[in-house]
Simulated scan of single mutants.
Amino acid sequence: MKPAFSVIFLTTLLGAGQGLFLALFTHQSYALFGLLPMQSDAFYGYGSTLALLFLACGLIASFFHLGRPERAWRSATQWRTSWLSREVIVLPVFMGVVFLFGLSHLAGYRPEIVTLPSGLLIDLSIVIGTIGTLLAFLLFICTGMIYACLRFLREWNSPLTVINYILLGGSSGFILASFYAASAAPSQTHFFVGWAIIITLLAFVGRTASLVRNARLKPKSTMQTAIGVKHPHIVQRSMGAMGGSFNTREFFHGKSPAFLRTIKPVFLLLAFAAPLALLALGMSTPSLLGFAFVLQYIGLLAERWFFFAQANHPQNLYYQCV
């Protein structure tokens, strides 16, 4: 498939925003049970603002993928059958919840909602954060299922697609949270770095598993089935047209096999190996954490490009000679 850079930025920016929010609420949940010291309202409030900024940038990027942006609202009308429509609905709802979570902290408005039998006090921010966590995972699922539900694109049609969207977004968000904590709450940096290393390792395992799986796929379609002719010896000489067409532009990335072989180790290095090394060093040198996030984000852009490019549409069997 031909990667659309608007969708590449959409998915990577949303993933970072979702991951950052999950990191912040994970810390607050630990603190709620006394496992970590509770941080100031400003820490959670401004962190939520940063997460909301990434989500907003991702939303803006999505509009560049629309032929008629003024009709964007129509994309939500098919929510019964379309994962894209469900994503369009869940995203603004999630952004609203992140906004309320940050506002409850920045305004200092966290009234007690209920006291559990154990004596644990549940305030408004905990309730909002729990709802936001559920919506964050639901948004990951909706985004991943847009591609995983397409049976004819076998490289995407796997549970690993959804799992990797969750893990890659979580990795990006926790690395960003590590950098944020290094300046806003230095004593908590180790907590975020530790989780960032764990999730990044899991993301590496998940992405490697999908690469191994896709490398073993054998096409179900052949030249014979593509054109409906059963003759055993068919050789294609041209694509059947003098110039390009929608089919040759939108369903093929146009890069050589050598380019695909090159970009794979590049994104594995930038998205996983380098950030893991920088996270380990960042324990003692916090400034490296920001570099780790930037480096990984570049790697995720390459990874997402490869994700789209690797999907081989069956129609390319017919239009393969250009």
Rank of each mutant, 00 (worst) to 15 (best):
M1Y: 08
F9C: 07
L10Q: 07
T11A: 07
A16L: 12
G19P: 05
L20S: 06
F21N: 02
H27V: 06
Y30H: 12
F33Q: 08
Y44F: 10
S48G: 13
A51D: 04
L52I: 03
L53A: 15
L55Q: 09
L55R: 10
C57W: 11
H65N: 03
R68S: 02
A72R: 04
W73K: 00
A76M: 10
A76V: 06
A76L: 09
Q78S: 07
R80W: 12
R80G: 04
L84C: 01
I89Q: 07
P92H: 05
F94V: 07
F94N: 07
G96H: 04
V98A: 04
L100Q: 05
G102R: 08
L106I: 08
Y109W: 15
Y109V: 11
P111N: 05
E112H: 06
E112I: 15
E112T: 15
E112Y: 02
P117K: 07
D123K: 08
L124V: 03
S125C: 05
I126G: 00
I126T: 10
V127W: 01
G129L: 03
G129E: 01
L134C: 05
A136R: 12
C142S: 14
M145H: 10
M145P: 03
A148N: 12
A148R: 06
L150A: 11
F152L: 06
L153C: 05
E155P: 07
W156T: 05
N157K: 01
S158A: 13
L160A: 03
L160T: 04
V162D: 06
I163S: 03
Y165S: 09
I166W: 06
L168C: 14
S172D: 09
G173P: 08
S178E: 12
Y180L: 08
A184Q: 15
S187C: 03
T189I: 07
F191L: 12
F191D: 01
F192T: 06
V193E: 06
V193W: 05
T200R: 06
L202F: 10
G206W: 14
A209E: 08
L211M: 12
V212A: 09
R213K: 13
A215T: 10
A215I: 03
R216S: 13
S221Q: 15
T222F: 11
T222C: 13
T225S: 15
I227W: 04
I234S: 09
I234Q: 11
V235R: 12
S238T: 13
G240N: 09
G243K: 14
G243L: 13
N247E: 13
N247W: 07
T248W: 00
E250Y: 00
F251Q: 03
F251P: 00
F251S: 00
G254F: 05
A258Q: 14
A273H: 10
P275Y: 13
L278M: 15
G282C: 03
M283F: 14
L288H: 11
F291A: 14
V294C: 09
Y297P: 04
I298L: 15
I298V: 15
L300A: 09
R304D: 01
F306H: 12
F306P: 01
A311F: 02
N312M: 08
P314K: 08
L317I: 09
L317Y: 13
V322H: 07
